[in-house]
Nucleic acid binder design. Structure first.
Length: 772
RNA sequence: GGGCGGGUAGCUCAGUCGGUUAGAGCACAUCCCUUACAAGGAUGGGGUCGCAGGUUCGAGUCCUGUUCCGCCCACCA
């Protein structure tokens, strides 16, 4: 006779690692139907998720905990429903983030990447990777993630690098990639280009400076101009007024004199100018302002760059050469004041472009970069959502997606970093470009043109990290090779991620998926919200309100954390999280444990044989359970995972533990068929509840289920583990259910009234027994 | 400037078919350490669902307007 006296409190610490190991060793994380194995059945339906790859050297935070919990829930649900489920894990090389970390470490040693050189730097970064790269995987495991660890991928792996080169070459050959000088966002600190998405605009107090643009050939005539950035005067190529502005119309076509430098530039007319703003006259700095750049293009004005890659004034800045842009701002304004060109200053709120990473002020600059001609890709990506091949949940983000793609600009994909996929283009000495999968291929091409002695140099730039992330759903399955995995598991089913990377990542995967595979990369996009603190504030280190999921798991268990994240959120909406919430769900886990403990112990002592004879309580709990199964199924179908979890919680605690288990004690005491039926009902209800709960709280349910199956009478086929047990099948509602629920509710009402009276009259327990 | 989300109990939030008396957790009050669970049990207090209209037999839920908060996008120097 086995011992079913379980500990009084659920000991998650010893349970979690043991259970996880059991799952992994038993191969439950691998798809049950594998195209690389004998006996493969292509007719079995798949459910595949590619994990949003965390930064390889990252540390687990609540955002990770959120998506891991959510995706594991989806995977476990589908696994139990019989799908061939595959969850592909992996990590991202995270170009800028990782490079910065290594550079920081180098700085501590008193050296720098420039000093040690590219090759040595990459070596160091790979070492860094080895050292810290595995940590995030261990942390994801702790969350209970049932991904197939034998299929783990890294964006800089040989396989994925091959995908990246293939993708680049294809786009290049199709004419969708080009290189050229354009006005881009430049990060002077990192000395690299960044994409539009990597720039954030913040409102900051500043000054609007009014000054005189003297008209050439005149002593005292001037056009008053206002600017927020006086240092850019050095790069002015025109002054622009509205074509119908009577104040300035007479100057159109004339020349004005650039302050300090004395260059002559034209006065041009463009309807872009707002007559009411400032002075109604706009200075044009095409080299350092997006709008001015566009106006210059329209008017065929020359480009003029006045800053170097550190945003210091260059040789075009005359006396200011070598000054930092902000020092120059002060200096030139002082000089202009001395020269009598200053009109006035006004307090003004600036819109300052700042780097999403690090927060330094971004400088728009003319620079030669690689771009993806994005319009054709965007059109296809729009169509895939419009015609329903891809569904976005919640639906409202569809509009956000359309709006972005409809106004998209070409994507700057080159970065002046070292850590990443190097642009697969080689140059002949005369600058001729050869785009190829590798140097050998490029050399072969070059030889046809330049003979055998040709020496090629590879482009120095690496690709935006999001370029490789954009290939993720299919590169991880083997693309461009036509692997069995790609054939069977692609397109994937679900892309689950935060709404904050809808543009960065989701849209790009859709564009590249359609372009390269001709198919959508996934059928559904599920966007979860961001996690905030208990007062709805962003979690940040400077606020000191960051909750560390690892500590929470240590103190209250993984199941409690998972349940909190899953049940506390609704699709697309931010959630606030507090330790108190996790505590209350830890309490729920303990409730499940103790109810399970009672049932397991009780059934091991109840009659193992008898006839079924349902009491009102038996019928009622069964009817309630069936309703629950139906509701959970409906809610899951609609991605209402949180609501489903709440309903299971309420059923388990209120209906099952508080009412049915209490009545079951009386029924078990009766013995005979009543006791047999009660035990049978206890087993069925607990079994089904554990199954429903398993995607939310996998550890405790697996542990209890193991005991339950041992304690239950022989005869039922249980299967090896809950993780691969069948999902409860919703049954159609039967006529008797409503009546039994109503009858039982009446009884509950009567009991409550009596208890209420006893409490109000302060009747001590056992003091009086009411006659009913 | 455009778009989106939110405003429901003291706090954090559910409420996705328009339908009994609007729910949960935490907090609060009273009683109870009854052999599943004190991380618990029982009972209770607490809401004009932001505001104003409208549709409807019936509105937290649908429509119009309005206000406050938050977010996203955008070229006003």
């Amino acid at each position: 006779m086995p011992d079913f006296t379980l500990p009084k409190t659920y000991d998650f610490k010893s349970t979690e690692s043991r259970i996880y190991e059991m799952w992994e060793k038993s191969g439950y994380f691998k798809p049950k139907n594998d195209p690389n194995q004998p006996g493969f059945d292509p007719s079995i339906k798949t459910f595949v998720i590619s994990i949003p790859p965390p930064n390889v050297t990252g540390e687990l935070h609540l955002g990770h905990a959120m998506f891991v919990s959510m995706e594991d829930l989806m995977i476990r649900y589908h696994r139990m429903k019989g799908y061939a489920t595959l969850w592909v894990p992996g990590s991202d090389h995270a170009g800028i983030a990782t490079q910065l970390q290594v550079e920081k470490a180098l700085a501590k040693e008193g050296t720098s990447r420039e000093k040690i050189g590219r090759e040595e730097f990459l070596k160091r970064t790979w070492q860094w990777n080895e050292k810290y790269g595995g940590i995030i995987y261990q942390q994801i495991r702790r969350l209970g993630a049932s991904c197939d660890w034998e299929r783990v991928r890294f964006t800089l792996d040989e396989g994925l690098s091959k995908s990246v080169r293939e993708g680049f070459v294809r786009l290049y050959k199709k004419g969708l990639i080009y290189r050229g000088p354009r006005l881009i966002n430049w990060s002077p600190g990192l000395k690299t280009a960044v994409s539009d998405l990597e720039v954030e605009y913040s409102q900051e107090p500043g000054t609007l400076y009014y000054f005189k643009y003297m008209v050439a050939g005149s002593q005292d005539e001037f056009i008053p101009v206002a600017t927020t950035r006086p240092e850019t005067i050095l790069g002015d190529t025109a002054v622009c007024v509205h074509p119908e502005d009577d104040r300035y119309r007479k100057y159109i076509g004339q020349k004005v004199i650039v302050p300090i430098l004395g260059r002559e530039v034209p006065v041009i007319a463009d309807a872009y100018v707002e007559r009411e703003f400032g002075t109604g006259a706009l200075k044009i700095t095409p080299g350092h302002d997006q709008n001015d750049y566009e106006i210059s293009q329209r008017h065929k004005l020359p480009m003029l760059s006045i800053m170097d890659e550190s945003a210091r004034i260059n040789e075009h800045g005359g006396p200011y050469q070598g000054l930092d842009r902000f020092d120059c701002r002060k200096k030139i304004w002082e000089d202009m004041r001395s020269a009598g060109l200053v009109l006035k200053e006004e307090a003004y709120t600036l819109t300052v472009p700042r780097s999403q990473r690090g927060g330094e002020i971004i400088e728009p600059m003319i620079s030669t970069q690689w771009f993806v001609h994005i319009q054709p890709l965007a059109d296809a990506a729009l169509e895939a959502v419009r015609d329903g091949r891809i569904t976005i949940v919640p639906e409202r983000f569809t509009k956000v997606y359309y709006n972005w793609l409809e106004n998209i600009k070409d994507w700057c994909i080159s970065r002046q970093l070292w850590w990443g996929h190097r642009v697969p283009v080689w140059y002949a000495p005369d600058g001729t470009m050869f785009c190829a999968h590798n140097e050998e291929e490029a050399t072969q091409q070059a030889r046809q043109q330049f003979g055998t002695d040709v020496h090629l140099e590879q482009d120095e730039d690496v690709l935006d990290t999001w370029f490789s992330s954009g290939l993720w759903p299919f590169s991880t399955l083997g693309w461009p090779d036509n692997t069995p995995d790609l054939g069977y598991f692609y397109p994937t089913a679900m892309m689950e991620t935060g709404y904050d990377i809808l543009f960065f990542w989701v849209a790009r995967m859709i564009m590249m998926g359609l372009e390269f595979t001709g198919e959508v990369p996934f059928q559904t996009v599920y966007l979860h919200g961001l996690i905030r603190d208990e007062h709805g504030r962003k979690m940040s280190k400077s606020y000191g309100n960051v909750i560390d999921p690892l500590i929470v798991m240590d103190e209250m268990g993984t199941d409690a954390l998972r349940f909190t994240l899953l049940v506390g959120s609704t699709p697309g909406n931010d959630m606030s999280l507090s330790v108190k919430k996790v505590e209350s769900n830890r309490n729920f886990a303990n409730k499940v444990w103790n109810a399970g403990r009672y049932v397991i112990n009780a059934i091991s002592q109840a009659p193992a044989q008898g006839n079924i004879d349902w009491s009102l309580a038996d019928s009622w709990i069964w009817a309630r359970l069936q309703t629950l199964v139906r509701d959970v199924e409906r809610l899951f179908q609609n991605y209402q995972y949180g609501e489903a979890g709440r309903q299971i919680y309420e059923f388990f605690w209120n209906d099952f533990a508080d009412w049915y288990v209490e009545l079951a004690k009386l029924q078990l005491a009766e013995g005979g068929d009543r006791a047999y039926t009660t035990a049978d009902t206890l087993i069925r209800v607990l079994d089904t509840s554990l199954r429903l709960l398993h995607p939310f709280t996998p550890y405790i349910t697996e542990e209890l289920w193991g005991y339950l199956k041992e304690a239950a009478p022989q005869g039922k086929e249980w299967g090896p583990a809950l993780i691969v047990a069948d999902w409860p099948m919703p049954l159609p509602e039967e006529d008797w259910e409503t009546q039994k629920v109503a009858d039982f509710s009446l009884m509950q009402e009567v009991v409550r009234v009596i208890r209420n009276l006893r409490a109000e009259k302060q009747v001590k327990p056992g003091q009086r027994t009411p006659a009913i």
